[in-house]
Nucleic acid binder design. Structure first.
Lengths: 193, 193
DNA sequence: CTAGCATGTAAGTAATTACTTGCATGAAAG
DNA sequence: CTTTCATGCAAGTAATTACTTACATGCTAG
C-alpha cells in the first residue's frame, strides 16, 4: 500500500487524530483504522496508548531546531534579515503545526510536551537577542530592551501562525508572506535608530 | 456554601476542567465533584454533557466585546492609544483565557466555539483599521497596508498572551506591562511617518 | 401547615475503551 | 524446506462513562 513502515503509519495517524480531537478522544481503534493496521498491532509496537505519544514526543525532540538556520544568510541589513527570519520561523511552525496543537491540548496531562514546545521560543529568543546586540553595536538598532524586542518579534510570528493554523481565512484573506512583509516593515523601522 | 447558583457552579467547574483536560477527558463525575453537586443535578440542569458546553458558549457570546472599549479614551497620540489598547486587549484575553483554551482544544468537535473566538480578532481588526485610517488622515501614520498593520498588532498581543497563558515564565520573566510597553514603542515608531 | 421544587442518594444500564490472549497466515531468511 | 517474525483475526475482560429511574429530604412560598 505505502512504503512507510507500520510504526510510522501508526504515529502519523495518531499525530493527526490527537491533534484534531485530543488525546482522550483519539481512540486506539480509530488510530488503527486510519493507519490501516489492526488495533493489536498498536499495542505490540508501543505497549500502551501513552507509548504512541511518547514516540511522537521523542520524534520531535530530534527535530532540527530552526535555531541554526537563523544565523545562516545574515546580511546585516535589518529588514532583510528579519523578513528572512520571519518567513523561516512561520514556515517552521507550520511544518510542526500538529505537534504544536497537541502541545496546547495536552499540556496538562503531558508536561513533557510543553517543555519541548517552550524550548523553541526560548532558543530563538536567545539567538535574536544576540543578533540585536550585534546590530546595536553596528549602530543599526537604537537603544532598546533587546529581550522584549526579541519576544515581540516571536510573538508577531506566532500570532500570525496561530491565526492561520486555527482560524484559517476567517480573520483575513491576506497571503502570509504579504502579512509578514508588512509586519517586518513596521518592526524593523521601529527598531532603527 | 457559596452565593452562586447551582448552574453557575457547574458551569464554572466545567469551564475549568474542560480547559485543563479537554472536553472528553473532563467527565461529568469530575465536574459534579468540583462543583460540589451531585452528578444527576448536571443532567437535570443541562440535559446532557453537550448542554454544559452549549451554555458556556452562550455565556461568552453575550460577553461584552472589548471592541466598544477601544474607541474610549482616544487621545490621537499614537503610542498612548496603542499602549492603552494593547493593555486592554491583553487583559481581555487573560480574562477569558479558559474559554480561549477550550476553543483551541475543541474547535474540531464544536465549530461554534471557533466562530465565537474568531469574532474577537475580526471585530478588533475593523476597529483598528478605522483608527489607522483616521490617524493617517491626520498625518500621524505613514502610507501602509492598514489591514496588515492591524493584524500584526493583534498578533503581537495574542502572541504575548499565549506565551504567558500556556508557558508561564518559562520563556521570559518580564512582567507583561513592560513587554507590551516595548512592543508598542517599536510598533508605533514603525508606523510613524 | 402544606404543596411544590430543587437537590441528594442509591442502583442500574448500555456502550465504549484500553488492553490481553490464542491462534492463523504469509513472507522473508537461513 | 523450515523456521522465524510481523501481522491479522476473533473473542473476551475489567473499568469507565454518559445517562436513567425511583425515592427520600429539606427549604420556601402561599
Amino acid at each position: 500500500m505505502s512504503t512507510k513502515s507500520t510504526a510510522e503509519r501508526i504515529i502519523e495517524a495518531a499525530l493527526q487524530l490527537i491533534s484534531e480531537k485530543g488525546y482522550t478522544a483519539a481512540t486506539t481503534k480509530a488510530i488503527a483504522e486510519l493507519a490501516g493496521v489492526n488495533e493489536v498491532t498498536i499495542f505490540r509496537h508501543f505497549g500502551n496508548k501513552r507509548g504512541i505519544l511518547k514516540s511522537i514526543i521523542e520524534q520531535f525532540s530530534y527535530f532540527p531546531l530552526l535555531q541554526q538556520e537563523i544565523n545562516k544568510n545574515v546580511t546585516w541589513d535589518l529588514e532583510t534579515d528579519l523578513l528572512n527570519f520571519s518567513i523561516k520561523h512561520f514556515n517552521f511552525l507550520m511544518s510542526i503545526k500538529d505537534f504544536v496543537m497537541i502541545g496546547f491540548k495536552e499540556a496538562m496531562q503531558f508536561p513533557e510536551i510543553n517543555e519541548e514546545i517552550a524550548n523553541i521560543p526560548l532558543h530563538i529568543k536567545n539567538e535574536l537577542i544576540h543578533y540585536f546586540q550585534e546590530m546595536h553595536e553596528r549602530g543599526k538598532i537604537r537603544e532598546i530592551d533587546f529581550e522584549a524586542a526579541a519576544l515581540s518579534l516571536i510573538a508577531v510570528n506566532f500570532g500570525h501562525f496561530m491565526s492561520r493554523a486555527r482560524l484559517g481565512t476567517i480573520v483575513s484573506h491576506m497571503p502570509p508572506e504579504e502579512l509578514l512583509k508588512t509586519s517586518i516593515s513596521i518592526f524593523s523601522r521601529g527598531l532603527a535608530p
